[in-house]
Amino acid sequence: MKIRIKFRKNGVMKFVGHLDVMRYFQKAMRRADIDIAYSGGYSPHQVMSFAAPLGVGITSDAEYIDIEINTPITTKDALKQLNDTMVEGMEVVAFKQLPEESKIAMSIVDAADYEVCFREGYAPSGNWEEKISSFFAQEEIVVWKKTKKSEKEVDIKPLIHTISTKDGKISMQIASGSANNLKPELVIEAFANYIGFDLKEFSLLIHRKELYANIGDENQKELISLENMGEDIE
């Protein structure tokens, strides 16, 4: 049975890196007595994959893990069993059955919502918020993007779906996943550049709000949150 789990990662848990969060959930499955499926061989491992790694320092309301289980369990029981073994800052909020033909989350992530704010003492002075719309109205937004081998100029404008601000918080929906992946800090760097602000290290508090898959096509996107692709188990 294919299952999608959604969890939140907040507080000090943001300092626990992606690989360690994976190990944390492998152990959590055993503690919570979830009858997860194992691969064969001498060192069997759990059938488990994460949708999109989250960088150290970033908090999230929408982390996803796909697993396979052998014995059915209701969503209600699974949430209780998992949350009874969670540490402060980790909370499982959804446990949904996926259709058997579903692709794993990792392969279908297309966009993500982020909320970004400036850490206290790090924000630009003046009314920077009103400049967001003219920033986004530019025809192209060119940034230097570092790849493994080199640095190159790219236009990230097509990768930003929406961006707005309210009460000092910047909300954005940007491309995410294996095809086109944009990091929220790169957007803010471009914005800082646009308003002539020198963005210092550690300036940003980044929070992931949601991850989406595209069930439309490339030209006519139809985004659906990863959570809504599955059903509760009664």
Binding site: G11, V12, M13, F15, V16, G17, D20, Y24, K27, R31, V56, G57, T85, V87, E88, G89, R119, E201, F202
Partner: peptide
């Protein structure tokens, strides 16, 4: 946060383990 993000393996210092 600034210190924790600038050192190796910050999870060594946060406690909160299972």
């Amino acid at each position: 946060d600034e210190i924790l993000l600038s050192i190796d393996k910050p999870a060594r210092y946060i406690g909160n383990e299972v």
